[in-house]
């Protein structure tokens, strides 16, 4: 009898294991097709730019001199190297190199004169295009023209000095989380402001030590990880999603309560997109911030506020009533006595 029971149990167990195996295998099979399709698409894109990436996608390149029948191998300078993985993950992944660069680059070695060709900026392609109206490129351009970057540097300073055309991707509207957006955005600033050589290319002044300059900021590491440089260094803009008017350093925000208060600036900067999507959440002011962080002063819960005030009033009221009764009774007793 007990052996039969064991056998039945084993049968049921085998059936359950079998069903699970089928489900796991079918899931794996259905998902194993996806990378193949993606790979195929990537291959198509690869082929269009293969010639360029043969050199610019590698850390080194080889040149052949037909006259002397000799070859030389050189390191690809970092500023001319294109990370192909980042390129095909970027916003402009469907572009051919020649969409932005001259066809004359097809001849090798490249003509040095080509370096003087003006490069198209964002506005050159996206300006006036109704398809990109929501991005408000015209207003971004206007803000950039008013920014300290545009005013303090030469005319050569353009969009691509911050946004790498080859790897650029929009993070402000993506659902990757604030942490990734902060890291991606701050890396743009640090490319020059934390790199002496890159900074030197744009300015003759000494590159300020960012850590020392921000010594006044409590919990500096947390601030650097949780918010973008532009939260304090740009003027708040309601017209565009990401403010581009970088202010001179003496106008940077230094007041804690700009962010640490109910009317937090972060709702108009870092959390603008999320805040617009989701207003107050579960009674929390500035609820969008709660999904990623907690900002003292900005995140308050209306229910906790009312609850704590109610408890405080009840306790204080109870104490007062008790105290008054004690005094009255004591006086009565003294009077009688």
């Amino acid at each position: 009898m007990s052996i039969n029971k064991v056998n039945n149990g084993l049968k049921i167990f085998s059936i359950i294991v079998g069903i699970n195996l089928v489900l796991i295998l079918s899931y794996s099979f259905s998902h194993s097709n996806e990378p193949v399709q993606e790979e195929k698409e990537e291959m198509v894109r690869h082929e269009e730019n293969t010639n360029c990436f043969k050199c610019h996608g590698e850390n080194k390149y080889t040149m052949y001199n037909a006259d002397s029948s000799s070859t030389i191998t050189k390191l690809m300078p970092r500023e001319l190297f294109i990370d192909t993985l980042e390129f095909y993950d970027g916003t402009h992944k469907t572009f051919k190199c020649s969409d932005c660069h001259s066809d004359e680059y097809n001849s090798v070695p490249h003509n040095p004169e080509l370096r003087f060709d003006p490069m198209p900026g964002c506005i050159d392609c996206h300006g006036g295009d109704p398809e990109y109206e929501e991005y408000k490129f015209e207003q971004i351009d206007e803000q950039f023209q008013n920014s300290v970057h545009s005013k303090a540097h030469t005319d050569n300073f353009a969009c691509w000095d911050c946004h790498d055309a080859h790897s650029y991707k929009s993070t402000a509207r993506a659902d990757n989380g604030i942490k990734d957006m902060v890291a991606y955005n701050n890396a743009m600033c640090l490319k020059c402001h934390a790199n002496t050589i890159n900074y030197m290319l744009l300015s003759d002044e000494e590159n300020p030590d960012l850590i020392a300059k921000h010594e006044w900021l409590p919990n500096q590491t947390q601030h650097f990880k949780k918010v973008r440089c532009i939260e304090c260094h740009t003027s708040v803009s309601d017209s565009v999603l990401v403010a581009h008017e970088v202010m001179p350093k003496d106008k940077a925000i230094k007041g804690c309560t700009e962010c640490h208060s109910k009317n937090t600036r972060l709702n108009h900067t870092l959390y603008k997109f999320k805040a617009a999507e989701r207003r107050d959440k579960n009674g929390f002011f500035n609820g969008a911030i709660l999904e990623e962080s907690f900002v003292i002063g900005a995140n308050r819960n209306i229910y906790l506020n009312y609850g704590s005030i109610a408890i405080f009033i009840l306790v204080l009221g109870g104490i007062l009533i008790h105290a008054i009764l004690r005094i009255i009774i004591k006086k009565k007793k003294n009077h009688v006595g």
């Binding site: 700009e258 208060s261 009317n263």
Partner: peptide
């Protein structure tokens, strides 16, 4: 916790 911009009793 209840800081406001500008007119706080104690600065943040």
């Amino acid at each position: 916790q209840y800081t406001t911009q500008g007119d706080s009793m104690i600065s943040f």
